[in-house]
Nucleic acid binder design. Structure first.
Length: 194
DNA sequence: CCCCAGGATTGCT
DNA sequence: AGCAATCATGGG
């Protein structure tokens, strides 16, 4: 593990503590959160998740059976609710299809399958792979790029260049990937407050 | 009143 | 290939 990346990780962990992103909830709920949080404050996502749960609509069969208008009303606090209602259905179809096959699939093949879903880009796909499926994929976002440039770690244009930078310089350990990404987000939030 | 949030797609150049 | 417009609610 590259020393600089390890030191920074330990610093973040000491400063902010264990973030515990997406802990004791169902993997499906993680996937729903990954879609709903696109360009949206997590607090708003929590409201939508609570709405879905209260309506007993937080499982694949219920989402697939729900009318779009109903889904839209439930996830409204997350914004972009028309797009997201459709995206949630598309993602849920894939989720259901993959439930039986995913264990046999290579991580990159699974990633390609998710990237083919409308409304699922690289960051959302990787969040699903890491936090819902437990695959060793490093999630990159705008904060990750800011973090890299702020500490003089790495500069690039493409999403996948950043992803591979982390994947090839820290151990391919799922809990570490989960925690590191969450800590970077926390770091950026704190930094913004100043 | 402004800007942003745990993005992705489409369309134009 | 790059870049702007679009989607839309809630909080600072």
């Amino acid at each position: 593990m590259q020393k600089r990346l390890k030191d920074l990780y330990l610093e973040l962990l000491a400063a902010y503590g264990h973030q515990g992103w997406w802990p004791a909830i169902s993997p499906y709920e993680v996937m729903v959160g990954a879609v709903l949080t696109q360009n949206t404050n997590w607090k708003n996502v929590e409201k939508a998740i609570a709405n879905l749960k209260a309506a007993d609509c937080l499982h694949p069969s219920a989402v697939l059976a729900a009318r779009n208008a109903r889904l839209e009303a439930l996830i409204r606090p997350t914004g972009f609710y028309r797009q997201k209602a459709e995206r949630l259905k598309c993602a849920t179809e894939t989720w259901t299809q993959m439930s039986a096959r995913k264990s046999k699939m290579d991580t990159m093949a699974l990633r390609a399958r998710w990237l083919a879903v409308k409304g699922i880009g690289k960051e959302t796909a990787d969040s699903i792979l890491l936090y819902a499926y437990g695959r060793p994929v490093f999630v990159v976002d705008a904060y990750t790029r800011l973090f890299c440039s702020h500490h003089g770690l790495f500069e690039a244009k493409e999403y996948d260049e950043y992803r591979r930078f982390f994947e090839s310089n820290i151990p391919g350990c799922v809990p570490l990937f989960k925690e590191y990404h969450a800590l970077i987000v926390q770091w950026a939030k704190q930094k913004r407050k100043k």
